[in-house]
Design a protein around this nucleic acid. Structure first.
Lengths: 225, 225
DNA sequence: ATACGTTTAAAACACTTGTTTTAATTGTCA
DNA sequence: TGACAATTAAAACAAGTGTTTTAAACGTAT
């Protein structure tokens, strides 16, 4: 009988070390590319411990993801709550909504002891890598925030049809994920014009770009050439 | 001595079948997830044929990618050429530049016999999946188009600094890739409000969004609150 | 037909993967 | 202290990977 059947909140020396090691490795190389032996070696733990504590590699992935993404999504909802109560029934400004989606990633990045890149890449991978086989648990984790932000955006952009809101949320997510996972590429390609490690600047640019995209004229309405 | 050392353009029955099968499978599941046995089985070809014709799995990946992305990039440059000569020294409109980046994917999609999704996902994966270990050959394939479009965009958006052009090209690419690779997710999440298989509509929405993002006010200039 | 280079075929190779099994160790409560 | 569960450890397992080897078949020009 494994420890995972216990009801009390699971906490164990080696369990934590496995989660920490897996988090870093997954962020660097992706879920499939990392082997259990890599993880257990870095964690200085026996190989079988992973299956003992998490049942399978898949179980470990889910727990790593939940531990990173859970607090981020929680803070997202909280920030949106505050913005909406402050708006008192009126529509929240687009930039404020976007900041509520993006900023929690930075916050979570700063308050944990992880290297900056880890949180960013992990959060990104969990959506881009896990196509349709993304476990149900994850889908549920994201469903609430997606619905809330969809509603909030629809209210802020009454000119857009429901379908258009979906399209543009989609593009917004794409911009965010690419920024999270491919930041080094940008730094590299820009020849020093874009600095690494300036998360605030990245947030600023991301909000500006996506806000512009969300507010853009309808394709049809546009310049009647 | 393998056939790949010959100087004449390589063309062979089984070679083509391998490329076709690999293309589909890579698009569906990604490069690492697909095994050589899957490929050779679908191609109805002996396992060793892959190493015979392509040297290694990596060699196969490169050739598949080049065969898909090469023509797309060629058409991109051609469309941009036409737009720039027509503009006669003046800046090309942002929407026109974006269409020159995005439309070739659709064109390539329609003229080949591949299933629609194949080209889209493959083109997407080749940038999102191959982080920094993307082979040099690929980097060179994309370098020219990236440079050309960067220059064209800078001219069309003189208000933006060089760094900001990089940032926004980055987000633009992210939107495109996410649209290419995660289109099914969007269709699914939208509850029928967004239709699959409507590439023209997708292009239209993508251009509208990214044009809006590119033209957005600077973060600093924005609403002086 | 013989010989030769090219291509296909089958099998084996060396290695890695996630997972189990089995045994030893540890800690805790009666 | 003794007993029982939880945990750690080491080894083996079965399956799959890319690649190489070896031999057979093929086609073509001498």
């Amino acid at each position: 009988m494994s420890v995972s059947e216990k009801n009390q909140p699971e906490a164990s020396e080696v369990r934590e070390r496995i989660l920490d090691a897996a988090e870093e490795l997954f962020a660097e190389q992706g879920f499939d590319a990392v082997s259990l032996r890599q993880i257990t070696t870095r964690a200085e733990v026996n190989l079988a411990a992973v299956n003992y504590y998490f049942g399978s590699k898949g179980g470990l992935v889910v727990e790593v993801l939940a531990r990173v993404v859970g607090p981020i999504n929680q803070r997202r909802l909280q920030m949106l709550d505050e913005a909406e109560t402050q708006a008192a029934g009126q529509a929240v400004e687009v930039e404020t909504i976007l900041a509520a989606v993006f900023r929690p990633v930075i916050v979570s990045m700063n308050e944990s002891e992880h290297s900056r890149q880890v949180v960013m890449k992990l959060a990104g991978r969990c959506m881009s890598e896990a196509g349709s086989e993304m476990p149900e648990a994850m889908r549920r984790l994201f469903r609430e925030v997606a619905d809330r932000f969809c509603a909030s955006l629809s209210k802020a952009l009454p000119r857009l049809s429901a379908a258009e809101v979906f399209w543009r949320m989609h593009f917004t997510i794409g911009s965010m994920l690419y920024a999270l996972t491919q930041h080094e590429t940008l730094v590299l390609l820009s020849d020093g014009k874009v600095l690494a490690d300036d998360a605030e600047k990245a947030l600023e640019e991301l909000v500006a770009f996506t806000a512009g995209g969300l507010r853009a004229q309808n394709a049809k309405e546009g310049a009647g050439k």
